[in-house]
Design a protein around this nucleic acid. Structure first.
Lengths: 158, 158
DNA sequence: GCATAACCGACCGCTTCAGTAGGATTTAAC
DNA sequence: GTTAAATCCTACTGAAGCGGTCGGTTATGC
């Protein structure tokens, strides 16, 4: 499994927030009930999202969470990264802020370069492209639209 | 981390086998020493590769492992899948033999479709494309060629 | 001031990961 | 025919992460 349920639950949560017509706050318990997810667990996830600047919260009665930005300005790479940590295919694989890819055992005493680097770079590219190329708005739309209960037809998605 | 060291070690192992000029068997201990990997751990990994029909073994003294097919006929999706198990972005995500994608909680009582399906389908596609589009021969080449110790220049790889 | 809700940190059972250990079996070489 | 080299197999282990729970604190609307 590439990702854990943290990403799954967290994305579902974000979609639930994005489904709100105006960006009115939604209580976590409402989301938990609608999505059939454990409330206390969602608390941990929403904390990560908030710390990453993806969501805002209003405390007290009638409070809740809402998106910090419009759904079409939120790409899923930031969401998944906030939930799962840095997205890298392999332990030895780090991406510098400038986007350069580093490999821990780059020619470590051996006479040939790290042969797997080519592979993991391609995988990394594929995942990043898929995540960064998808906006939260798309998922909201795909999942049935904003608060309207018109069920969308399931087309072939790739 | 998308993959564990099983994939990393296993691919390095396969590359080591592919580096052999004729497909002469290589002993695991030789690979372990060259790649600086624990021998006993490699045994587990090579067993998976053999069970998946990717490698063959000859027992006894001067025995070892070799590729079951030429390196340019081995795509990395089969290798990684043999090592890590089925490649799916998420627990709820299964691919049928015909290539159809199933999601466990497809409209589970709720009035909207599973909003995350679009996302995971795209991720799945990106990873599969990267893995299936890479052959072992490419990695052998990239890593410095077959048994020749000419160090390849590291170009930009994406 | 009370219900509602966001916040926070500690804890827990379970599984997987990464690796070790110890042996059994097969084969080539001497 | 013994021995060394190699594959093969099963069981085990410490550490970490996952999925989730719990209890409590703080803030806010009514």
């Amino acid at each position: 499994m590439l990702f854990s349920t943290k990403a799954e639950y967290g994305v579902r949560l974000m979609v639930a927030l994005g489904r709100q017509p105006d960006s009115a706050p939604v209580s976590l318990s409402a989301v938990a009930e609608a999505e059939r997810l454990p409330l206390s667990y969602l608390e941990h996830l929403v904390a990560k999202l908030r710390r990453a600047g993806l969501g805002t919260s209003t405390r007290g009665a009638h409070g809740g969470y809402s998106l910090a930005k419009p759904a079409d300005e939120i790409t899923l790479d930031t969401v998944v990264e906030a939930l799962e940590g840095q997205i890298a295919p392999m332990e030895c694989f780090h991406e510098t802020p400038e986007g350069k890819v580093l490999c821990s055992h780059e020619s470590d005493g051996d006479h040939h370069a790290c042969a797997t680097k080519l592979l993991w770079t391609r995988v990394q590219g594929g995942v990043t492209k898929a995540l960064a190329g998808t906006t939260l708005a798309e998922l909201v739309e795909f999942g049935g639209g904003a608060s309207e209960k018109a069920p969308a037809a399931l087309g072939s998605a790739a």
